[in-house]
């Protein structure tokens, strides 16, 4: 077990998969000679060459489409979009081709395509560099959408995504590339389906994903220490398909649910998880589920306003206390 940073986990997954299979290749803006904006592909250009570690022009839709085409005939592309915001420009190839080709062809063509997206709101990057687009990808039939919250899963999800025969979107987080955590020394694969219990508890389930897992864990610790509330923290991790049974199992145990999302409501992970709870285990609830989410505004530049727009651990604590009356 070695302590590694989030970006190092991603780099290690690239390296292992590229060493194993000559049809695995990476492409994106500045990923080669420059080593990647977040270092996640550093050193690969020297090791695997320009045919397999491709610095693309700034043409998101078409280099995405080139990856999709290559995947359709047996290659295994890992396409990095420098920032999730730029993925809007690639939506035609992602939605109309990658997501639909297997279905439209009656299952005859596979598209083992991987798109990596540095996502989330970092620090004062403004409205056009702070989008959280998980709600968009989650709404597209045919895609798998996963979000690593830890260096271990940053590694393990990419490993699984490269081997998976379906198109997979991995939403990383720009503020987490230097996050440290343990990664096993031996090869392993994080499931592309299913939730993970990050902290067991009995009083309330806090559903989170990506960076909000850390807000939830921070909140759970304070809720236990200061208010005697034993919260269970669930990392949703796979946003599509979502683990309905895993969500319901936790609610059946705690009878209360909070969903924490960095994305804005309306529409999103919070509304989806609460709909699942209603459908799967409504009569197990002791309180109405609540979502903690970003404000419905374009993310402002001002540090003060930016902080106000994005939820945090204190927001989760306030909701949990109100829900439990403590």
């Amino acid at each position: 077990m070695a302590e590694m940073m989030y970006w190092q986990g991603i780099l290690r997954a690239h390296d292992e998969e590229m060493a194993r299979d000559p049809l695995v290749f990476a492409m994106g803006e500045d990923i080669g000679v420059a080593g990647g904006t977040y270092k996640a592909t550093s050193g690969l250009f020297a090791k695997y060459g320009e045919q397999r570690v491709i610095d693309t022009p700034i043409s998101e839709n078409s280099y995405t489409g080139i990856g999709v085409g290559a995947a359709m005939v047996g290659a295994r592309p890992i396409v990095e979009i420098m920032s999730v915001n730029f993925a809007w420009l690639a939506m035609d190839q992602l939605m109309n081709n990658a997501a639909k080709i297997h279905y439209m062809s009656g299952g005859r063509i596979r598209c083992p395509f991987v798109m990596r997206l540095p996502g989330g709101t970092a620090h004062q990057l403004g409205a056009q560099h702070s989008a959280r687009m998980e709600k968009v990808f989650m709404g597209i039939s045919g895609l798998r959408v996963v979000t690593p919250a830890t260096p271990r899963d940053a590694y393990g999800l990419l490993k699984s995504a490269v081997r998976c025969d379906d198109p997979v979107v991995i939403i990383e987080h720009e503020a987490m590339y230097n996050l440290k955590g343990e990664i096993p020394d031996t090869e392993f694969f994080t499931p592309l389906e299913g939730v993970e219990v990050m902290r067991p508890g009995k009083d309330v389930s806090i559903f989170a994903y990506n960076i909000s897992v850390h807000w939830a864990l921070e909140a759970a610790q304070k809720l236990a220490q200061e208010y005697g509330i034993d919260a269970e923290v669930i990392d949703l991790r796979a946003l599509k398909p979502m683990d309905r049974a895993g969500i319901a199992a936790s609610v059946r145990k705690t009878h209360r649910a909070i969903v924490v999302e960095e994305d804005e409501a309306p529409v999103g992970v919070g509304s989806e998880v609460i709909a699942i709870i209603n459908e799967e285990c409504f009569f197990d609830l002791d309180a109405a589920p609540v979502r903690v989410h970003a404000l419905d505004v374009p993310i402002p530049y001002s540090h003060r306003l930016e902080k106000a727009a994005i939820p945090n651990a204190d927001d989760v604590i306030a909701v949990a206390r109100k829900m439990l009356g403590r």
Binding site: F25, Q51, S62, G65, I66, A70, A75, N97
Partner: peptide
């Protein structure tokens, strides 16, 4: 781009 992608796989 799909056509270019098939060609990329052929190249690899």
């Amino acid at each position: 781009p799909l056509a270019a992608g098939f060609a990329k796989a052929i190249q690899l």
